[in-house]
């Protein structure tokens, strides 16, 4: 029984990380109508940056803040120089250009950090184990759940309660009208892209002490993010959260029984959702 509880809690942690990756992909698709195949690569870069930050300063907390900000800045630069040139092109072209970006990031990461994976340990204050009755659980993993939940809340507040969020939501409906009403949509797009990609970077930093850092993980992460976004519904915040948790828990519970089966199931579910309900659980037609 405890084993299953353990797996479910693990799954929630994994699901929150998947949420952080997917919500950015989803918002970017919703507002910019842009398909970002480099999303997994930015996750990877975030994880590697946190590795470097930790090995230089020895301070995980610093890495947790600095690495995602660097990723967001880098994403902003990418958007200003390259991505904005592709918005008007069909999705096919967007996919190919970002696939190219993903390849470059991956290869640069390998050139800098080597082809063999890296690992970082959680901060000393979270190395312990939490005990509730006869249930033991690593503190760091609980921290990931709590921290991701706070970030989720902040993102929700940002999207739902601020002027910026209102513009993002309005722009997702009709970017042209928002632009006609006097908003600099270019700036809105850049900030949203940086925010979405920064969240993927943050996910990379949070996941690094749990899953390690492997240079070829980008496409896998991207695949899972697409599964989450499709199941939840493109452009939906709630969808990314629920989808992330479903995928995380399924993967975690299945991991002891039949790990390839978990992948078969989630990709099967993705195909099923697209065929039967293309707008996902929470998306709108």
């Amino acid at each position: 029984m405890n084993l299953y509880l353990f797996q479910v809690v693990n799954g929630i942690g994994l699901g929150m990380i998947y949420f952080l990756i997917s919500v950015g992909l989803s918002i970017i698709f919703g507002l910019l109508n842009f398909v970002n195949f480099a999303h997994g690569a930015f996750y990877l870069l975030g994880a590697y940056l946190s590795y470097t930050a930790v090995s230089i300063t020895g301070n995980y907390w610093l890495a947790l803040i600095v690495a995602p900000l660097c990723i967001a800045f880098f994403a902003w630069v990418c958007e200003r120089t390259l991505i904005k040139r592709v918005y008007h092109l069909p999705h096919t072209y967007q996919i190919l250009v970002t696939l190219g970006v993903a390849l470059i990031i991956q290869e640069v990461c390998i050139s800098i950090w080597g082809p063999i994976g890296k690992s970082i340990s959680p901060p000393d204050s979270l190395k312990g184990v939490l005990q509730i009755g006869d249930f033991y659980y690593p503190q760091y993993r609980l921290f990931v759940i709590a921290f991701a939940a706070v970030v989720a809340l902040l993102v929700w507040l940002l999207l739902d309660k601020t002027k910026f969020g209102a513009l993002v939501r309005a722009g997702s409906e009709d970017a042209e009208t928002v632009s006609l009403l006097g908003t600099h949509t270019h700036r809105l797009f850049s900030i949203t892209f940086a925010l979405g990609v920064g969240l993927a970077g943050l996910a990379g930093v949070l996941a690094a002490p749990i899953k390690g850092i492997h240079p070829f993980v980008g496409p896998e992460v991207l695949g899972i993010a697409f599964v989450v976004v499709v199941i939840g519904g493109m452009g939906s915040f709630t969808g990314a959260l629920v989808g992330g948790l479903i995928v995380g828990i399924v993967q975690s519970v299945m991991s002891t029984l039949w790990p390839q089966g978990a992948s078969l199931m989630i990709y099967g579910a993705m195909a099923f959702v697209i065929l039967l309900r293309p707008y996902g659980l929470f998306g709108r037609a």
Binding site: R85, V86, L96, V97, L99, G100, V101, A102, L103, I104
Partner: peptide
């Protein structure tokens, strides 16, 4: 390859 892909598309 990545750079070539971007260059060809653009």
């Amino acid at each position: 390859l990545g750079a070539a892909l971007i260059a060809v598309v653009l």
